[in-house]
Nucleic acid binder design. Structure first.
Lengths: 231, 231
DNA sequence: CGCGGCTTTGATGTTCATCAAGTAAAGTGG
DNA sequence: CCACTTTACTTGATGAACATCAAAGCCGCG
């Protein structure tokens, strides 16, 4: 079960460099007084589509997925949130309700900061506001570029993308344990589960990667990158 | 050719209600002193991918497209910008260079406001900063949702989407002149030009729409919406 | 131990891009 | 203004890419 953790003091937090280094000690204290740090184990849901937005969500550690449920009841994964991301995307400024369901795909620690406090700080501290905007802009742009990139490629390119995403962007090593099921990969990059498996097997037979269950090793990163670029 | 227009005073501008109504008269004057209003005729380019970002771009009237050129030289349209949109998306806060090429697809009037001034105002006027964030969040979220919506649908659903987009969102009437070529539609919703034509013809034969060259009339909006939802 | 979900492979059919070829429309230069 | 070129549009035929269906093995869990 998810549980509230003991309070890490914001002013001591390593993540302070993120966007919060423009805040004064008093302002940090204000955040400190209006935040909760929560632990979620793999599979637990942080918030549901339609829930009222009360907090700004910041991922301290772990990995989460943002998903929507389509009219036909199929789940679709919009993006993965990694540590240092502020998850929930931009909708927290333009919506009253969450537009995505957010679920932990690895054990995760999340800071819930009262949204009113964030807004107050944006209002009163201009440097913070600008810095904040820069960070969230980057995340939003990333989501858009990723979606475009995926959707203009065929299946092999998409699989190459997701492998590189985990190897280079999340784990920063060529051998890692996949935190998602084949089905989730399919939901993330718009293809059928069967074809995710088929193409992973194909890559394995080609010697591009090695697979043992959830464990993946990228043998030839350069060739993988070529597959990605050729689509 | 594009040309600089006579200055419309910001404080008199109808668009002031957009995000700029939180500004004081002096602040508006500052924008006024650092902006240019430009006219672009259909087909002209406002900025190229890679150009340095110096201005915040606001579309007063017309219609523009944002596009990227892929590695394989194919152009891909990310989104269409309509009046009241601040075009250029969020990258202006997180990049030094434009990441998209922006081209007018209808005769357009664009305000170029010095980006430094916008940033200064965000820094000094907290209410403006918050309002501004709300507006750009909405636009970004729209882009993301649209991309997901399009890419999870098959061709008929995508064509239905684009027809509804123009009818309901841009022109707010069931009969309108398509501002884009069939090829541009294809680039926007990820399909081949031939199939755009084929499915438009199919819709015409079904009596769903009427077509005469660029002129489109939606005969049965409800059925069109069903086609959209069924994918 | 048995049930349900995840994984895997093969076979089949659908959806879609591509190729080809022709017509119409819209610029371009003399 | 007319021949010329280019670009947009349209339809049909073909094959490739992909989803779906089916069947079976695997694993964790109550």
């Amino acid at each position: 079960m998810s549980k509230v953790l003991n309070h890490t003091n914001c002013s001591k937090c390593v993540h302070r460099t993120w966007a919060f280094d423009k805040l004064t000690e008093e302002e940090l204290q204000l955040i400190d007084d209006h935040k909760q740090e929560k632990y979620y184990s793999k599979g637990e849901t942080l918030c549901h589509e339609g829930d009222e937005i009360k907090n700004f969500l910041y991922l301290r550690s772990g990995l989460v997925k943002l998903l929507t449920t389509e009219k036909n009841q199929k789940e679709h994964i919009i993006s993965l949130g990694k540590p240092f991301d502020f998850i929930g995307l931009l909708s927290i400024f333009s919506n009253d309700q969450h537009i995505y369901t957010i679920t932990a795909i690895e054990n995760s620690v999340v800071c819930f900061v009262d949204l009113g406090v964030i807004k107050k700080l944006i209002r009163q501290n201009g440097d913070f506001a600008l810095d904040f905007m820069e960070k969230i802009s980057k995340i939003s742009d990333d989501v858009i570029n990723t979606r475009v990139s995926i959707n203009t490629k065929q299946l092999r390119g998409r699989i190459a993308y997701i492998l590189m995403f985990f190897a280079d962007y999340i784990y920063k090593r060529n051998e890692f344990e996949l935190p998602v099921s084949r089905k989730e990969i399919a939901q993330l990059i718009d293809m059928s589960t069967e074809n995710v498996i088929r193409i992973l097997s194909e890559f394995r037979k080609d010697g591009l990667i090695a697979i043992e269950g959830k464990n993946i090793r990228v043998n030839d990163p350069e060739r993988l990158n070529r597959v990605y670029e050729l689509g």
